[in-house]
Design a protein around this nucleic acid. Structure first.
Lengths: 222, 222
DNA sequence: GGATGTGAATCCGTTCACAGCT
DNA sequence: AGCTGTGAACGGATTCACATCC
């Protein structure tokens, strides 16, 4: 299969997971794997994995499986992370600071190269090897550096407005940590990380043992 | 429709999103809404929203819509967040620290009441109004507090082992920030937050303008 | 023998469209 | 007229199962 048959976003979303497993295998020194083994590790069916990969080419060998390093390279190319993307962090609260300092980005294709906040106390301070810049510098800095990706870690009330600024500056992919749905043009991609939403999803499945939580009254505002 | 027809996890996952929109509406002082309005704000079809809600009861009134406060209460009950869940944070790096200090949990049903790390430098230090405890105290503390929910923010290499300890201590829901798939018994729920995976998913859709990233060689290890 | 790649079959989730209530 | 709740239709994603190749 050649490509260009627009592949569903759900498939694309699994590729980074495959990549994680492959880099683990590389660390372990294993040079060949199979859809079955990958599936085992990831809790995904082997058929699923084969079907997903088949959208992009024929990477395996029948009877043998997949060469780990080769598949790893191919997936990195497909996801366009066979290069290093510059990323901006907006909002230097605890979370923004954690993101700006996180060492795990570089080895997986991303480097934070700009950090913004609007708090005068924070502007000008150092964060790793970066200096916190004022929001007023956002447009110039992002366009100058050709930054296309941003992580949004500002309070929900400001998120939409900052988002608009980012888009105006040319950002095309936003990882949004604010618990709010953003409005963006169709050509801007947004992913949401709301830890509370995940927690709330899981509590649905928990037992209602009164020992396990503090019962409150309904709590709906007026 | 009464209930108990096991509702797909994908539906459950949207309820927290509806809840977010409803609390926004409450803040704005709006008392009635419609599936259309909610859908508009969230980028979800109105039919989807009506269908999702219909699994749990008939919350709306034809011709009128939904009473915001009532629907909000109902969803909180359904998700079992009409109470406050105690949560443990394991791993006090930048991220764990940010989680432990984050003010947004309490208003949405969760309170961090225990923090663990294995670094002697960190053990005993204060974090908000909590004190960092050693991993050796994990079992006793979690069982004593009847904690069922944990957030995992340790390096990937330790995640599975810590996960096992958590499960042994009675934890039934884990929010995992380590970039690794965890093995857990069927009755333990896990949600994954891997920001890099989301970024990698979005880069697939970005243009390959050489100005926008630093090209590297293939980079696959031996 | 063993594992891939893939059409066919199945399953599941979303959307349609409308009856029914306010 | 307006909006919900829902069976029916649709479409998309997953799984099956097997031909094919190492």
């Amino acid at each position: 299969m050649v490509a260009v048959e627009d592949i569903s976003n759900i498939v694309i979303g699994r590729l980074p997971i495959y990549l994680r497993a492959l880099s683990q295998l590389i660390e372990e020194g294993q040079s060949v794997t199979s859809s079955h083994e990958l599936g085992e590790r990831l809790g995904i069916s082997s058929a699923q994995i084969r079907k997903d990969l088949s959208h992009f080419g024929e990477f395996g060998k029948q009877g043998t499986g997949y060469k780990v390093a080769h598949l790893y390279d191919q997936l990195r190319q497909i996801l366009k992370i066979d290069r290093e993307w510059r990323v901006a962090v907006v909002g230097v609260g605890d979370l923004g600071r954690a993101l700006a300092r996180y060492g795990g980005f570089v080895e997986r294709g991303f480097r934070v190269t700009a950090v913004f906040d609007n708090d005068p106390q924070k502007i000008g301070t150092d964060l790793g090897d970066l200096t916190v810049m004022p929001m007023s510098a956002l447009y110039n800095e992002i366009t100058a550096q050709h930054i296309k990706i941003a992580m949004l870690a500002v309070p929900a009330a400001y998120a939409q407005s900052v988002c608009n600024d980012l888009v105006a500056a040319g950002v095309r992919a936003i990882l949004n940590y604010a618990p709010i749905t953003l409005n963006t043009p169709f050509n801007v991609h947004v992913q949401y990380i709301d830890p509370v939403a995940y927690l709330q999803q899981m509590t649905y499945y928990l037992d209602s043992d009164p020992m396990d939580s503090v019962v409150k009254d309904s709590g709906a505002a007026s």
